[in-house]
Design a protein around this nucleic acid. Sequence first.
DNA 1: CTGAAAGCGCTAACAC
DNA 2: GTGTTAGCGCTTTCAG
Lengths: 329, 329
Amino acid sequence: MGDVARIAGVSASTVSHVLNGTRKVDSGTRLRVEAAIEETGYRRNVVARSLAAGRTNTIGLSIAALTNPYFGSLVHAVERALSDAGYVLIVGDSHDHVTSEKRVTDSLLDRQVDGMIVAPAAGSERVALPDIIRTGTPLVLIDRGVDLDCDQVGPENVSSARSLTEHLLDLGHRRIAVVRGLAGISSTTERFEGYTTALADRGIAVDPGLVLEGDSNTDVAEREVHALMSTSDRPTALVSLNNAMTIGTLKALRALGLSIPADVAFVCYDDFEWSDLFEPKLTAAAQDVETIGATAVDLLLRRIRGHEAEPQRISVPTTFHHRNSCGCT
Amino acid sequence: MGDVARIAGVSASTVSHVLNGTRKVDSGTRLRVEAAIEETGYRRNVVARSLAAGRTNTIGLSIAALTNPYFGSLVHAVERALSDAGYVLIVGDSHDHVTSEKRVTDSLLDRQVDGMIVAPAAGSERVALPDIIRTGTPLVLIDRGVDLDCDQVGPENVSSARSLTEHLLDLGHRRIAVVRGLAGISSTTERFEGYTTALADRGIAVDPGLVLEGDSNTDVAEREVHALMSTSDRPTALVSLNNAMTIGTLKALRALGLSIPADVAFVCYDDFEWSDLFEPKLTAAAQDVETIGATAVDLLLRRIRGHEAEPQRISVPTTFHHRNSCGCT
DNA sequence: CTGAAAGCGCTAACAC
DNA sequence: GTGTTAGCGCTTTCAG
């Protein structure tokens, strides 16, 4: 920067101002500075800039599981919204585990991110999140909610899962099994609540034998479903509570040679790119990932700009894709 | 840091050294410093540290399309390898377009990343990449190769695509169509080469009418395949050259009511989580994303540590998953 | 409209 | 084993 200033015959401060457009600069001067920049191939040092300015224009994102295509799309949506706003994204994968999540969020905080977006791991509200809040760094939670006082954005869970279940009930099913995701996270709890209330509304008691703990792990779900569907009084319908559970469930049904919807009707929370390629096409509740990401960024930027207000919790509606796996034609 | 030093009764330099383990510190002193850190809730400022130390412990990754699950897994693999090595990842999505790719890589360079990994967009060798090389920042290319002198890691393309095609030939097919990805990138060129050489080996000429330009766009592929398969002398087999092309192809076949493999045999490059859930199960060449990511990180770290040697080009073998869509039982 | 100067918070010689 | 000191490259009052 000193070189540029010297060549252009101005001070470093002027170079800084033409670079950032932070104050009026005579057009002749500006041209000279720009020529000097061009000539030297000068490139600004954002690290030094961040140190001096006290902000980094960087947002940290801690994501539960980057391999899950759902989270992949979420990262994409967040990245796009941030880059439109002139921010850069740093991502860390928490592997859905509090310990590595803490490592990730600490590292982000050390890097002086201007704000953080976290897709919390189970138990996060007792480990990583309080520390973030203590630093005063603007924070918004994404995907899963926790019982903390901060902005949160996620998909609508309860009524979506309820609609899926009700659809099955409307078709006459009475023995409907459910494959739950990871215990202890809000999405599982809420989606399960949607399932139970749908049943309760029709005066049907929840049969514990029809509640499968898939643990958000494909293999576990597959085993559980396999076991359940091998019994003599197996359910006539299944509802899967997230995409990993769906894969596990479908594998189990396939292994057993059970066909959908003839042998068992099926509906699921979360949509796939191949949902209507599958035979039969999957009836599913699809999350609006774009909106979730954009909303999270919006809330965060507002906080960064000093917006003081009660934390908000936003539920983004899902879309019900009515296809064939439920048994409708 | 000043506070910590004062409370512990030492100099800032000693605090720095206990923080980084950069020199021997008396254990009593260290304890006092650690106590002071605990007491003040001090957190190191990595930005200042980077400026002073002249390195950021940060690696930039420019990825062509974060929404593609394949790239999602790649990011995940890279992130893991880097975090094991104590580095942090900054990702930018180039949307497979040179202009936004340039924006991404410039921003990464401005942020003083210690190294860059780039999944180049088409045309990148004339825009973003030369500038990166000019700065002297260690660089490794991933996924797609370009004609430049730098480290590159990607999946094996030619012989993988050739094996897929040969398998179809072995089954007696002679009219085999191919759905190509984005023109102008190495993976498309090389995979197509695998297809043509397989045909040439059997003395079969490439029929231009059977070569579809899918442009790595699902919709385009769907249209092309739909058109081709609606003709009277349609091919008896199809090979798809990447995952997006596969989705498009399957949609078209489904829309036409053509069944695989009875009406048309099908094999594809790239595997899916649902490949063996699909009916029929898809015969595919699967990339080893983990190895690609880990290898790229390995090459990069070696460069960062000052390793001087001829740039390497590494092809990671694919795995042939022999399933049913090819028509075997 | 432009420059001078004081840092931002840390690291790394260099002394002791 | 520890402290002193000089920056790292930029932003931003404060003057002019």
